[in-house]
Simulated scan of single mutants.
Amino acid sequence: MRIVFFINSIEGEAPHFTTTVLALAALNRGHEIYYVTPGDFVLRPDDSLMVRAVSLPRAKYKKPETLHKDLHGDGTKIETIDVADLDVLFLRNDPSDDAYERPWAAHVGAMFGRLASERGVLVVNDPDGLALAQNKLYFQGFPERVRPETLISKSIDEIKSFIENQPKGVIVKPLQGSGGKNVFKVDTPTDANLNQIFEAVSGEGYLIAQGYIPEAKSGDVRLFVMNGKPLELGGKFAALRRVPAKGEVRSNIHVQGTAEKVKVTDTMLEVAELVRPKLIQDGMFLVGLDIVGDKILEINVYTPGGLWSMSQMYEADFPGAVIEALERKREVHAANRTISNRALATL
Rank of each mutant, 00 (worst) to 15 (best):
L137V: 13
E215A: 15
V170Q: 05
Y138K: 02
V287R: 00
V183K: 07
A192D: 12
L279K: 05
A321L: 10
V322H: 08
A23Y: 09
L347C: 10
T265S: 15
A259L: 07
A272W: 02
I163D: 01
Y206C: 00
L27I: 12
K154W: 10
R52D: 15
L297R: 07
P214R: 03
S48A: 15
V221T: 12
N28L: 10
Y61Q: 12
I323R: 05
A106D: 05
H72V: 10
V332N: 01
K154Y: 07
A26S: 14
S48F: 15
I10V: 15
E215N: 08
G177S: 09
T80Q: 14
F184K: 01
E215K: 12
V322I: 14
I280M: 14
F17D: 10
A116R: 09
M313G: 01
I208R: 02
L130E: 04
L130Y: 09
E324P: 00
R147Y: 06
M284E: 03
S178H: 13
E11F: 12
R330K: 14
V243P: 01
P103A: 14
V292I: 15
V262Q: 02
E79V: 09
L279T: 03
G75I: 00
F112R: 03
L67H: 09
M111F: 12
I33W: 06
N182T: 04
K295T: 00
R114D: 12
F17T: 02
E164W: 08
V108I: 15
G306A: 05
G179Q: 11
M313R: 03
V225N: 03
E248K: 13
L67T: 05
D294T: 01
V262C: 08
S218Y: 05
N125W: 11
L132W: 11
M111C: 10
V146R: 01
V36P: 07
V88A: 01
T20F: 08
V332T: 13
D46W: 14
D97K: 15
V108S: 02
R276W: 00
A259Y: 07
A239F: 08
S340C: 08
D98Y: 04
E270I: 01
V332A: 14
A23G: 08
P304E: 04
V146T: 12
D282C: 03
L89F: 11
Q140W: 06
V221H: 01
G288F: 03
Q256C: 03
K60A: 13
L71C: 07
L67Q: 08
K229H: 11
G75C: 05
D220W: 02
K168A: 15
P189E: 07
E32C: 06
P95A: 06
V4L: 11
R145S: 14
K278G: 00
D290V: 00
Q312N: 09
E13Y: 02
Q281R: 14
